[in-house]
Amino acid sequence: MAAPGQPSAPKRRRRTRRIVISLVVLIALLVAADFGAAAVFEYQVSKRAREQFHLTDDPSVKVHGFSFLAQAISGEYGHVAIDAKGVPVQDTLRDLEVHVDLMGVIAPLGDLVSGKLQGVRVREVEGQVRVKASDITRALLQNENPLVSSITNLTIDPISEQDAQTDPDKRTDAEQAAAERAAELETDNDTKAGARICATADLGGEETDFCAYGLITLVEAKAHFVPSRLELTNSVLGTGQLPDAFEAGITGWLKQLSLDPGQLPFTVTPTAVNVEPGVLSVKGKAFDVVLGGSGG
């Protein structure tokens, strides 16, 4: 039996259960409110990013960190990511992917709730534009070459800067060791990157598979391809090299490959180029910018 003046065990269990249920409901309501408030903020940023990118659809916006409401009360959000796909630039680049990381986003809670939020201030922006193989194909075909009538199955893959400039099969052991040491020092934040571009082309009426090895370099915000050697295969040549004059014509044509991804979002200055399987990317940083205002 319970002591006089004390609730019985069943009553204590019922009271504890009610308290637990109430806490669960309260937490659920707080989480729902947190997600709801985050959705409102993400919509506001997405709408302004759509204007900034000149898009037909709203880009994806994600607020990182928990909780959103704690960040909203402070008026500053640590990390907001924006992703937009199918961004066109002129006639050649039609399917760019844009990724932007906004660090230190200033958006007062009162302006957010009232709907009066205008320019969103951002302490630091890192922007990246990714160019797919399909756009690289269009860029190549824009540069007319009497030796090339078509290109299909184009791929782009990363290689070390050393392998881009010299053939690994022709190095001495010492040269190979030096190349491996140099490759270990390469970073993703450089103005050049090794690339292998392969495709099937109609060269002088003969279907030819080729791979071009060289450097992608960033010059005045544009990515240029500088090939150092070619490997070709067709039914006439087998595997090997074209006659010098023929190869010079193809190499000169590949050197004309220049990709201008347009101004990076929020006046970000391009500072690095990188190659990933199937993608060429250009990225850079900016500080103290405004999203959706006159300063963007």
Score class of each variant (00 low, 15 high):
residue 1 M to D: 11
residue 1 M to E: 12
residue 2 A to W: 01
residue 4 P to D: 08
residue 7 P to G: 03
residue 11 K to M: 09
residue 12 R to F: 02
residue 14 R to H: 00
residue 16 T to Y: 00
residue 22 S to F: 02
residue 23 L to E: 09
residue 23 L to S: 08
residue 25 V to L: 12
residue 26 L to T: 04
residue 30 L to F: 14
residue 31 V to M: 11
residue 33 A to H: 03
residue 33 A to C: 10
residue 34 D to W: 07
residue 37 A to V: 08
residue 40 V to E: 07
residue 42 E to N: 14
residue 43 Y to I: 10
residue 46 S to Q: 13
residue 48 R to E: 06
residue 48 R to K: 15
residue 49 A to C: 12
residue 51 E to A: 11
residue 52 Q to I: 14
residue 53 F to H: 14
residue 54 H to G: 05
residue 56 T to C: 07
residue 57 D to S: 15
residue 57 D to Y: 14
residue 58 D to Q: 14
residue 62 K to S: 09
residue 63 V to Q: 08
residue 69 L to S: 08
residue 74 S to F: 08
residue 79 H to A: 09
residue 79 H to P: 02
residue 81 A to V: 13
residue 81 A to H: 09
residue 81 A to D: 00
residue 87 V to A: 04
residue 89 V to E: 04
residue 89 V to I: 10
residue 89 V to G: 06
residue 91 D to N: 15
residue 93 L to E: 02
residue 93 L to H: 05
residue 93 L to I: 00
residue 94 R to W: 03
residue 97 E to V: 02
residue 101 D to G: 10
residue 101 D to N: 13
residue 103 M to E: 10
residue 105 V to K: 09
residue 106 I to S: 10
residue 110 G to D: 13
residue 110 G to K: 09
residue 110 G to T: 13
residue 112 L to T: 14
residue 114 S to V: 11
residue 114 S to Q: 01
residue 116 K to V: 08
residue 122 V to N: 07
residue 123 R to W: 01
residue 124 E to F: 00
residue 125 V to Q: 10
residue 127 G to L: 05
residue 132 K to F: 06
residue 135 D to Y: 06
residue 135 D to W: 03
residue 138 R to P: 06
residue 139 A to V: 06
residue 143 N to S: 15
residue 143 N to K: 11
residue 145 N to V: 06
residue 146 P to C: 02
residue 148 V to N: 10
residue 151 I to T: 11
residue 159 I to F: 10
residue 159 I to H: 06
residue 167 D to L: 13
residue 169 D to A: 12
residue 169 D to G: 04
residue 169 D to I: 01
residue 171 R to D: 02
residue 173 D to F: 05
residue 175 E to D: 13
residue 181 R to G: 01
residue 182 A to M: 07
residue 182 A to F: 05
residue 183 A to S: 13
residue 184 E to L: 10
residue 184 E to Y: 09
residue 188 D to H: 04
residue 188 D to Q: 02
residue 188 D to P: 01
residue 196 R to K: 15
residue 202 D to H: 03
residue 203 L to Y: 02
residue 203 L to H: 03
residue 204 G to I: 03
residue 206 E to S: 09
residue 207 E to D: 15
residue 208 T to E: 15
residue 209 D to R: 11
residue 209 D to I: 01
residue 211 C to E: 12
residue 211 C to N: 13
residue 212 A to G: 11
residue 212 A to R: 08
residue 213 Y to A: 02
residue 213 Y to P: 01
residue 213 Y to T: 01
residue 214 G to Y: 03
residue 216 I to F: 14
residue 217 T to R: 15
residue 218 L to S: 06
residue 219 V to S: 12
residue 223 A to Y: 12
residue 223 A to F: 12
residue 234 N to I: 00
residue 235 S to V: 05
residue 235 S to W: 06
residue 236 V to E: 15
residue 238 G to W: 06
residue 242 L to S: 08
residue 243 P to H: 13
residue 244 D to N: 08
residue 244 D to K: 14
residue 244 D to E: 07
residue 248 A to D: 08
residue 249 G to E: 14
residue 254 L to H: 01
residue 255 K to I: 08
residue 260 D to R: 11
residue 261 P to W: 13
residue 261 P to R: 11
residue 262 G to C: 04
residue 265 P to F: 06
residue 270 P to L: 06
residue 273 V to L: 05
residue 274 N to I: 00
residue 280 L to R: 01
residue 280 L to D: 04
residue 284 G to A: 10
residue 287 F to N: 14
residue 296 G to Y: 07
